[in-house]
């Protein structure tokens, strides 16, 4: 069910190559050096070149791994990163709750969508800060709680207090204009 890391690497390679392409395109429109010999375009080009170089190395490694996969299922040399991949994967294995990884991912997507909607409401719709924030905290808090119904009103109250408190301090004392 889990993707082979080499595929993830290949996706990374594609994204990085696209980014490097952007760098080259952007650099091509820059004026020639004016005050010093380097100019604005030098660093984007250097970085673009480096990114392509690194991406190719990773791509070659990944393809090599995918080919060799038929021989053994062991994920080869890159099982190193214990520190930068904390709890998420490990605790999924340890956890004795019955929920599947899929529900977890759904919840993650739900939180992310809420976050986007929250900012859309504040920025584009320019809705009032307090109710929007309270609603946001309520939804996210509830989604992350084990016992949903009990959590709902707790988070509604908490969200309201948090939003009102922040609003008061920000606008009254600190002159930040919220929404």
């Amino acid at each position: 069910m889990r993707l082979h890391p080499a595929w993830v690497d290949l996706a990374l390679v594609l994204a990085v190559l696209a980014g490097a392409g952007l760098l080259f395109v952007g650099a091509s429109t820059l004026p020639p050096p004016r005050f010093e010999p380097m100019g604005s375009a030098a660093l984007p080009r250097i970085l673009g070149g480096l990114l392509v170089f690194f991406a190719l190395i990773i791509a070659i490694k990944a393809i090599w791994q995918l080919r060799g996969r038929t021989d053994s299922n062991v994920v080869s040399d890159e099982t190193d990163d214990t520190t930068s991949r904390p709890s998420a994967a490990n605790s999924a294995l340890e956890s004795d709750t019955e929920e599947s990884a899929l529900t977890g991912q759904l919840r993650g997507i739900c939180v992310f969508t809420c976050l986007i909607l929250y900012i859309v409401a504040l920025d584009i719709l320019q809705w009032s800060f307090i109710p929007v924030t309270a609603a946001f905290v309520t939804i996210v808090g509830t989604a992350l709680s084990p016992q949903r119904l009990q959590a709902l009103w707790k988070f509604a109250l908490f969200g309201l207090v948090l939003a009102a408190g922040l609003y008061l301090v920000m606008t009254r004392f600190l002159y930040v204009d919220l929404g």
């Binding site: 760098l23 004026p31 005050f35 984007p44 990773i58 890159e78």
Partner: peptide
């Protein structure tokens, strides 16, 4: 971990620092 990935991370971070007004010419870049 992987040295290549570490270096690539640094290069990516540097690339993301590029857009904006280039202080050495006073004009927009990327």
């Amino acid at each position: 971990g992987s040295l290549v990935k570490g270096l690539m991370a640094a290069a990516l971070g540097m690339a993301f620092a590029l857009p904006g007004i280039d202080n050495s010419i006073g004009r927009a870049r990327l």
